[in-house]
Amino acid sequence: MSRTLQLAEQLISRPSVTPDDAGCQQILGERLAQLGFTLETIESGPADFRVTNLWAVRRPSAGQSAKPTRTLVFAGHTDVVPTGPVEQWTSHPFTPTHRDGKLYGRGACDMKTSVAAFVVSIEEFLQAEPDPQLTLALLLTSDEEGPGVDGTVIVCNALAARGEVVDYCIVGEPTAVERCGDMIKNGRRGTMSGKLTVKGVQGHIAYPHLAKNPVHSVAPALAELVALNTAGGWDAGNAYFQPTSWQISNFHSGTGASNVIPGSAVIDFNFRFSTESTPESLQQRVHAVLDAHQVEYTLAWTIGGLPFLTTPGELVTAVQGAIREETGIETELSTSGGTSDARFIAKICKQVVELGPVNASIHKIDEHIDVAEIETLKNIYVRTLKQLNAALAA
């Protein structure tokens, strides 16, 4: 059994459902401490939702620190989503199990294998380069799958406050489609939600002149907002991003009776937006449509994350080269999918990419990963470290 697989199984066996780290970070920290890393645990959140974060860093020796240096951070999470009905799993979700060349268990893909590969890749890199010019760091949280307010964002704020410079970051999110390395994320769309409350007047459905139906009032405005999704009405996107999309997620109105006009309607919606738009521009557009249709409303906004983009440069080049050398694949750069903690890291680091295993089974019953790809992922991380360090030494 490879060291990466062994460590991945050790982590999967810990039932670390958000926000419980279940001792994963202690296991990882002990191995990093043996490599000369300084460990800092940052806890955050209320007593009934206590989040554990780990910041581990290893700086160059005095002789190397006098030369040009860069900091590379591996970032990830030790928490996992709930298992769902345990009886529907073929094997217990927290008992690492092998079947048909695959490793099964909650977190096998998202993202305990990536975290294991982080640590083993650092071990192998330092064995080959005992005194590198790179500063190496690991940022782990137990609040990525939850609200995300006491996890990576807390660590990033602390690093920014103390003036810590982060040059490169690799986030271990599962990004591959069919084979490890076939896709990496070099950016993500922003996310912004709105809760729209439309005011009406409740009344008997037989006497509509004595009431005001909020569903009728808002319907033309909603139709116009939906139409903006076509033909790039919000924005046309760009070479890296799809056009911005607006989607209704929930619509609540009525008393449940068939003869009562509702007194209000509540609509939840969400934007996934590109770098061609800003929260302010999208908010102004929505308000303008509602106002033009004379809708009586209140609207509360929540910005979940801003879009970010890492254009091809030192990190993307190193990752692409490492994937090519290890697999022969010319990786695809993508900004598709949902959000990740990279949105917080991008605020303190200009070059951020996400690189991890195939994402087909994440969050599902019988989550799994191909065992053969575990070493592939670790080797890609090792090659990336070597390329970035060699570029500094050149």
Rank of each mutant, 00 (worst) to 15 (best):
A75Y: 04
R106I: 04
E87P: 03
G84A: 11
T113W: 01
A108Q: 08
L72I: 15
L140Q: 07
W55C: 00
S65A: 15
F74K: 13
V81L: 11
T135H: 08
E144F: 14
F118Y: 14
A116T: 01
T95E: 15
T97F: 13
V115M: 08
H77E: 03
T78Y: 03
V73E: 08
T90G: 12
I122T: 00
L138D: 03
A158L: 13
G148N: 06
L126N: 07
L136T: 00
R99E: 12
L54T: 04
D110R: 10
E87V: 05
H77S: 06
D131F: 01
R59A: 14
P82M: 02
V155D: 08
T69N: 15
V149I: 14
G84S: 11
T135L: 09
T78C: 03
G105S: 09
D143L: 00
P85G: 00
D100P: 10
L138H: 06
G101P: 14
T141Y: 12
G63T: 12
Q64E: 15
P60G: 09
A158H: 14
L139I: 03
Q133L: 08
T78G: 01
D131P: 03
H92E: 13
G146E: 08
F125S: 04
L134P: 02
V57N: 03
A158D: 14
M111L: 11
T135V: 04
V80P: 01
D100H: 10
V73W: 07
P93F: 12
H98E: 15
V149N: 14
P130W: 04
K102V: 02
E129R: 15
L103S: 10
P147F: 12
G84H: 09
R106L: 11
F125N: 09
R58M: 05
T141C: 13
W89Y: 11
P132V: 02
T141I: 11
A66G: 02
A75L: 12
L126I: 08
F94W: 10
Q133N: 14
L134Y: 00
A128P: 11
C109E: 12
D79G: 06
T152Y: 06
V73R: 02
A116C: 06
T113D: 00
F94R: 09
S65R: 15
G146C: 10
S121H: 09
A116F: 04
S61R: 09
L72V: 13
V149Q: 15
I154H: 06
G76V: 00
P68Y: 06
P96F: 07
S61Q: 10
A158V: 04
V115P: 00
R70W: 10
T141F: 09
S91Y: 13
A66L: 05
L134K: 03
R58T: 01
